[in-house]
Structures are given as structure tokens and as C-alpha cells.
Amino acid sequence: MSGLLERIAGKLRSYREPGYYTKLDHKWTMVIDLDKCNGCEACVVACYAENNLPVVGREECEKSRAFSWLRIERYVEGEYPDVKVKFIPVMCQHCMKAPCETGCPVYATYHNQDGLNVQVYNRCVGTFTCATYCTYDVRRFNWFTYKWPKPLEAQLNPDVSVREMGVMEKCTFCIQRIRSAKDTAKDESRPVKDGDIKPACSQSCPTGAIYFGDIQDPESVVAKLAKSPRRYRLLEELNADPSVIYLKRVMGDGTSSHE
């Protein structure tokens, strides 16, 4: 018996070499400039289009089962006429110390060598644990196997699985685009360059508020922006070490901000 346990532990160790979480190939990071974001939600539709997100309909929306991996949160402060509105796009923060990963009983969500928090649909058994552990409420559950009325299914992206009932899913940082960029780079025998990868949300953003890149590369745009004095991370005090960095919005405290 103990021999068997030792073998299992050894097997696990071989997947969890020392430094597995610290020496990453890449550390994909997103920087979102809240001073540029105007809340137009172009990114939300881009995400639906890229990642085969189903439209669930009015009744399911009412049960808060809408699928948006990426949402624009909106906060309203004050009373008329001193109303302040703030927008923030929230998607999976790809935490380096992700609470969801510790919860999954079947290792369906784990951290890979790119610093991504990934979800393996084939492993997922739908215990919902990760969604309850998630700090940012970004995980979405397939309550049903959703259908696309013909011929809408012709639009489905062949690079992304169409998920079935009972599976948890979430933002992947458009891992299929990362994969395809790596593929192209490999064909050209070069490392992935900064700017090769643009997730769908970042690509579509009319104001150019969403930046994406490898923060381990000191020359990358995200590495430079990450040093901005406006930088902060969402609910940083919870210590989940998220990979999404926000740049604070510049905003007056009252209406009489002119000099």
C-alpha cells in the first residue's frame, strides 16, 4: 500500500518540479487603462464571437446565467447632479495564487507554464467549487448544452471547443491566439514578439485601452505600463496575485475641478 502511495506521490512530483510556478516560459499579462476605457462593450461582443459563447436568452439571463466571460462593471456614485460613473472591464484575472485551482477536486483548473490559469473542459465534472472559490465572479457554468439555430453555427470558431452541459468555463486570455502566435513564431524560428498576440477584446477595443503581452519581457509594452504610478490590481489585498493590471482612472473629486 505504502509503495503505491509513494509511486503516486512520485508521479505528482514529476509534474510539480521545483520552480514550476516561478520559472515560467511566459507570464502573459493584461494591462487595462481605465482612463481610456469608455465602457462601450465592444470587447464583450468580441469575446462572444471569438470564444463560441452561447446566447442563453431572457429567462436564463434573469437567473444570472449569461455567459459573458468578460463584463463591464459600472459603479455609480453620488446623487443628481453630482453623479460619477466608473467603468471597469472584468474577466478572469489569471491569478498566480488562484483560489479556484486549490478547490478543484479533479485538477480541471490549474496553472500552466505560460502563467495562465487554464480550465480543461474534458476533466471538469461540474462541482462548481472553482466558481464558489473565485474572488472575481468570472467563472461561467454550462447549465445546458446550448444550441445555435441554423445557420448561426457556421460562425463558430473552430479553434475553440463548443462546451457541453455540466462544464465550467471562463476567460482563457484567448489561448488559441497565443497558440497560433507561438505556432507562427516557431515556423519563423524566432521567439514570440511583443504585439504578436492580441486577445479578441484587446483587438476590438475602439479606444485602445487593453494591452496584452509577456511581463517577463522587460521591453514589452505591458512591462513598461506595469510600472505606471497609476497601477493597481483588483482586490489586491486578497493576495491572489492577479495577472491583470489596471491603471487608475483620472477623475476629479467634484464638478469644480477646473483651475
Binding site: N112, Q113, Y121, N122, Q176
Partner: peptide, 11 residues
């Protein structure tokens, strides 16, 4: 390289 990572082959 990363040949055991789920997302190398799963999509």
C-alpha cells in the same frame, strides 16, 4: 516542450 500541458492539445 510542455508536451504534458493539457492546453497543448486540448482546445
Amino acid at each position: 516542450k510542455n508536451g504534458h500541458d493539457c492546453w497543448t492539445c486540448h482546445k
